[in-house]
Design a protein around this nucleic acid. Sequence first.
DNA 1: TTCGACATTTGATCTCGATCAAATACAGTC
DNA 2: GACTGTATTTGATCGAGATCAAATGTCGAA
Lengths: 248, 248
Amino acid sequence: MPNRSLAVTEMACADCPIRHRAVCARCESDELEKLDAIKYYRRFEAGQTIAWAGDKMDFVASVVEGVASLTQTMEDGRRQMVGLLLPSDFLGRPNRESVSYDVTAATDVMLCCFRRVPFQGLIEETPHLSQRLLEMTLDELDAAREWMLLLGRKTAREKIASFLSIIARRDASLKNSKNAMELAFDLPLTREAMADYLGLTLETVSRQMSALKRDGVIELKGKRHIIVPDVEALMDETGDDADGGVYI
Amino acid sequence: MPNRSLAVTEMACADCPIRHRAVCARCESDELEKLDAIKYYRRFEAGQTIAWAGDKMDFVASVVEGVASLTQTMEDGRRQMVGLLLPSDFLGRPNRESVSYDVTAATDVMLCCFRRVPFQGLIEETPHLSQRLLEMTLDELDAAREWMLLLGRKTAREKIASFLSIIARRDASLKNSKNAMELAFDLPLTREAMADYLGLTLETVSRQMSALKRDGVIELKGKRHIIVPDVEALMDETGDDADGGVYI
DNA sequence: TTCGACATTTGATCTCGATCAAATACAGTC
DNA sequence: GACTGTATTTGATCGAGATCAAATGTCGAA
């Protein structure tokens, strides 16, 4: 199971080295300086498009704050989210000039960007960096495969429960919260974006959320704030085995 | 678009360096010797299980011949394929002891295995190797994301057409065939395995295959040999834009 | 050639989630 | 506080694909 909390914990470090550490946990200080030389920050507002599929992208980035999504769109408008990037996640392919997916800020987002070409050079000089990126990419591939099981075989109710438990887990690890029985967190996505994530319509998302609320599995404060009175009960709805294995 | 044909073409090399080159296109000869020292071959028959989810796996491997699948199973028996490995594809996570998915030989398979722990050591000493693995993993992630669009949003008919075009493309590149209008290839999967790939039932797979045949999009010789009289016509059924972007 | 074990096809029916439509909640602005 | 635009919920109906069931094809062994 991928240890995302490592990178996440390191985000608590002073100043900014976060994104360096998130990218490369073992870089020496001179390597960090090289990273420093090619980095800059960018902010995006919720709903804003960071890049369209096919755009040239001259940077790669670490997500510092907020949530960004990768989405594919078919000609007739059908949309499927294929990536959800939370703080410490990596965005972009170092040696690919253009993006393959629409990249959108789901919430307000802060990126720590690295100029792509020099970053690619750094990868070639810095073994730790490509090893670290390999680990992060393998974790992302594992997450994509769990996601494929969800898309291909789970019921609408299981999809919703799985999504909530994925967000809850990552959100909880961000807050370093005690593993209390009760869990509370905010949804970073609209119902429509949840539908794009889960391969459902927004109406079905809404109905299943209502059903889980009716059945006491979750409570809603406003539209976005979720309380899970009993984490086990939520897990039972996901269709996954008890010991987990789901991560995003 | 990932250039898989590079690795594949190199498979034509004399003797065995195939799998070395497939793993690391730029390795120096002494690095190849180190790889040689920790490699061995294994054969599996169609239908045989290579590893069960949760098993310790003491090797990683390159697929030399045949097709292997990665599959996830839920407690109640629902199954979803999450990886399909063709020749030149890589199997396993160097620094993870156990597999997360059932690995099955879909056809007779020949693997070139590398002992895992020494291989992990080699990665740490050989920058080219982790860069090469990073590229391969990013390609696999792209493929997984196309697959997610298929699972989440495509109709049964589009799923079948997409699957056929994916197999046709990879099979064609293996055979170095001229890009003729007509295309012929063998399916490496049973209807049931196709269903697991596509998130459908085997009955639906069968019905949609019959429908595509009835509509003249494909011809069947036996159950497994497919002829595509007009590649464009098949592509039109996939739901993808004309210029492609789908690969496995 | 027949038998048996599978893989595949085809048929009949049912169901979950999609679609179409309308009501409600909510946040920001004037 | 009324107004506007957007997000969300709820209702009614439909249909693609699942499910249950049976027939057909295929290949190797006896």
